[in-house]
Simulated scan of single mutants.
Amino acid sequence: MTTSDTSGRLDEAFERLHISGPEFRGWLSNHAPMVVESLAVHGQAGAVHRWLDLYSDRLEEFPTPVERVTDANWHEALGDPRRAADWIDHFTRAVAERPWRAVLAEWWPRLLPGLYGAATHPVIRVGHAVRALRTEETGPRLTELAHALGYWAARHHPVTGVETLPGAGTPGRSLDTVPPVETAETGFLGRLAAVRALPRWADDVTDPDTARARLVELVRAATHRYATHGHGEETMLVHAATAPNAVLRTLDALPRELWAPSLHAAWTASAAVTAMYAPDEPVDYVPPARLTAEEVVERALAHGDEHVIKLTDTALDVGDERALAAALRAVELSDPLV
């Protein structure tokens, strides 16, 4: 269930949002660009501005520039959140001067090792921006890609030193073998630093088409798993599904030689989030009703929480009843946007 927004509301929303920064309250991610794109894709463009009005207290002013990012100094600016405005300016210039696919192909392998920064929100934002551009190339959508890539560069955060454990044949069974972290830390980066070991899965895949197929499997498994494990942390566990789905959405805009590395990074991100927030035990979950995809979207919109809407968006990509059940589980577990 996807539609093309011909009303112009998505571009209006992007223009409205691009005077705001990528974060608020010091480190929380601005989810609005991702949500409005999701709503527009699923036939809810008419609700975009109403939802933004509810979310507007989380929009903060665009950050202050520090120093221009150049070909000579970008390495030192990578991963510096103080440089968010500089990075966004860099990519705004880049997509104005060159085709956006060329910019993406150049920077994707540079940014991919830092997929985990800002709780994977930057790569998720990139995935939404790419989907919007693949539907229609407009100025606001190009600017949105620049903001998304700039946010990723500013929050770039690699993960190293993680031991590899035996995995299983499927992504679902491999996620079941992920050892939970043991830490008193509550923040994302503190918990991420406590991830010591993750099971291998699909690490021998090198063929691009096989990588795509495995990524589809991973997104499906992680989405299904939310229905039975989302109570471990109803917000953060959403990203075990939405982060790899953002990578999947971007594949067709990338050179094929980048597909297998993208799969491997997506698996590590999904497994790491699983390790950080897994509940002690799963629960059986039966949704309260069998609803159509359109009805699930309407429930997510009525609830309003940004993570609920984004998981619903991914669930609709997966497209089966278990995925829709996961979206309804997120509605039940999460606090509504008021």
Rank of each mutant, 00 (worst) to 15 (best):
L328C: 12
R9M: 09
W201H: 01
L145P: 01
E37W: 02
H156L: 06
P166L: 15
V162S: 04
L104K: 00
G114K: 14
V123A: 08
P158E: 14
W107E: 07
P244Y: 15
G79A: 10
V331Y: 08
L112C: 10
R25L: 14
A184S: 12
D207M: 06
F62T: 05
P199W: 06
A154G: 04
F188T: 10
R196Y: 14
S174N: 09
E234C: 05
R329W: 00
R220Y: 09
A278Y: 00
G127T: 03
A323E: 04
E182S: 15
W267S: 07
T274Q: 04
V283D: 07
D80R: 05
G26S: 05
R214F: 12
A193E: 15
R249N: 15
A129E: 02
R329M: 00
V123W: 08
L142Q: 15
S56R: 15
V36S: 07
P113T: 04
A96V: 01
R225M: 10
A330I: 01
H147G: 14
G21E: 00
T312Y: 05
R200L: 13
R299M: 11
R83H: 09
P140G: 15
H75L: 06
Y285V: 13
R191D: 00
R58Q: 10
T170E: 12
H128R: 06
A72Q: 13
H121E: 15
R141Q: 14
P288R: 03
P282C: 14
D57P: 02
A293W: 06
A202L: 10
Y285D: 08
L142I: 03
